[in-house]
Design a protein around this nucleic acid. Structure first.
Lengths: 233, 233
DNA sequence: TCGACGCTTCGGTCGCCGCCGAAGCGTCGC
DNA sequence: GCGACGCTTCGGCGGCGACCGAAGCGTCGA
């Protein structure tokens, strides 16, 4: 099996609209059941079953059985990153999609959402910009958290230092497809999202990926990051 | 046209072995003719013609006519990055592929090669590690060139400062699929490759992507980066 | 216990896509 | 000018994959 056929096989996993829909839905970082995905993509249960078999066999998804329910989710951050990279590539640089403004659901996603395990959309970008402005994130020569940035996470955000160590990079740039700018991914991005949700400063809207800043969160972020609430609307 | 069908269409561009071979070949950053690619992938000219039409129509490649010759190349660094990301995903982390050691061509690629417009393989990784060891590249909190790193490029390497400015990030991490570690991409990676080739410190082997360090280059890199020649074999 | 439910496998259908050789057009070099 | 060459388009063929309903199995809850 050669590299080109491996590449073609990997691409083929996503080269079907139904499977692409599944993977985009699973970018919310949660586990979905087979029938939820079937309903979401409006296909028969048998079709969903076969597609999931291919995605799991190909390594993009993992599954867990709970009685008659089969829960599937993205296999990990690497897989999420792969899909996000493809999605980011779809949009020309430097321009927001005009068509995305036409629906309320899309507007909510643009305002704030989870992107696998970190925050994205206007919220994600605003947070990333604020971190940059306050010297907690250095983007002049690459994309890296500063010493002060690490301290900010372990200090006011109470992230455990060991939670910032692992095989994943601490800071990773993730191009935001609604905002056309970068938001913070990597360990730091994941922990930030986790803490903001845990503190109730950010909460989920509905069952999809959309999130919003709570009033307490607006105050806290203004205090901690000089984050202007107007930058979130 | 929805996001999922856009994603599926993009993935479909690479979900064919022949097209995948084309794109992998074009990762050398050069322009190939249609018949060169047809020969490389061992398909008929008519097949190549159709596949190239799809890749160009899909935006991954661009073409240029010179008389009867049609030169095609990757549309840009974003497209190269997309393909590299997929290729990098193919390999499990933390292990070198044993099968790649079985052929001389593969060995040359592992030693050193171009990865679109920057250096990869053992050479690329060794350079990246040396830059890190000397405090020119900071990888503790992300992936960023240090101030000293920028000065090193504009100083001893004589990169024009304006060549380090542009829409592309200065430093970008590119996972090396032969070494399983990162090498430097982005503007800095491209300029480094360019200067090393221009100075004759690195030269191409054959017509593919393989490169090697010249004796003058070995001396210069030992002087400038304490780069141990043994780390290149 | 029994019917509902979630999921899987099977068989059949249909559309799509990659492949090729042939024919044709334009460029190139002798 | 002419034959070789690079490339494109066309028509035909065969294989593959997505889709579905039906049948079947195991789990769940009243």
């Amino acid at each position: 099996m050669s590299r080109s056929s491996d590449l073609a096989a990997l691409a083929a996993l996503l080269a079907d609209d139904t499977r692409a829909r599944f993977c985009l839905a699973l970018l919310d970082g949660r586990a979905w059941t087979a029938s939820e995905l079937a309903a979401h993509a409006t296909v028969a249960a048998s079709t969903a079953s076969e597609h999931l078999g291919r995605l799991i066999g190909g390594g993009l998804l993992v599954e867990r059985r709970q009685g008659r329910h089969r829960y599937v989710q993205l296999a990990g951050p690497r897989e999420a990153e792969l899909i996000e990279g493809l999605v980011a590539h779809l949009e020309p640089r430097g321009q927001r999609p005009a068509t995305l403004r036409t629906s309320r659901a899309a507007e909510a996603l643009a305002r704030g959402r989870t992107c696998y395990d970190h925050l994205a959309g206007r919220l994600g970008v605003a947070l990333t910009d604020a971190l940059t402005d306050r010297g907690l994130l250095d983007r002049t020569a690459g994309f890296a958290l500063t010493t002060a940035g690490v301290e900010w996470l372990t200090g006011p955000l109470a992230v455990a230092p060991e939670d910032l160590r692992g095989r994943r990079p601490l800071a990773k740039e993730c191009l935001d497809w609604t905002e056309r700018r970068s938001h913070l991914a990597g360990l730091a991005g994941a922990r930030l999202c986790e803490r903001l949700l845990a503190r109730g400063w950010v909460k989920r809207i509905g069952t999809q990926r959309a999130v919003t800043v709570t009033p307490e969160g607006t105050d806290a972020l203004r205090l901690l990051l000089d984050l202007d609430p107007a930058s979130l609307s």
